[in-house]
Amino acid sequence: MIFRNSLSITLLCGIFLFNDVFAHHVLGRPAYSLGEDSNTPPSMQIETQIGEYYVTYMAFPAFPKPNQRGRVNLYASRIDNGNTFNGDVIFKVKDDSWFSSKEEVLGTQKIDNGVFRQGFIFTEAGSYIITAEFESDGEPYIIDFPLQIGESDSIGPLGITVAILIFVIVGVNITQRRRLQRIKAQQHHSDSSGDNNV
């Protein structure tokens, strides 16, 4: 395997800060679905594979709010023989922001009916990363999943776009005005020196 010492994946950003992506059939990306009877709140689910394992992560509810009780379920089964992983899984959480390195342990869970269940309550809205860690055959597995609590703050991309557009338009206007003034000044200069020669 490529990762000899540690297998770790981050299913967070894809390319540009994906914190609310979705797919019905695409591996490694969140999908939203209703329960079979459609009476339960929608859940968010991510299927992926890492090293020797297929891993499925589910969050209930799909869009938890601050102070709302929620739960993540983790299923891990071996790719080669389908056997379920039955060791301990440690769940941790951290802020999904560039300047935060604070991490808290949510709990260590044992398998219960083929599932590792971890409850949570977040008091503040925001984008979080849930990390699931386990060890199999002497290799550590670290998997990061996104969890959005409350409304996501999507003003960032708009702000960046507006800033780029203003910078380009104003910059080009100023540059072009100066260039035209310089050309006019040069023309004026050459015209007047031509008059002097006459």
Partner: peptide, 9 residues
């Protein structure tokens, strides 16, 4: 990356 199934992307 799955942009087609991501409103945000």
């Amino acid at each position: 990356v799955g942009v087609t199934v991501s409103p945000y992307a």
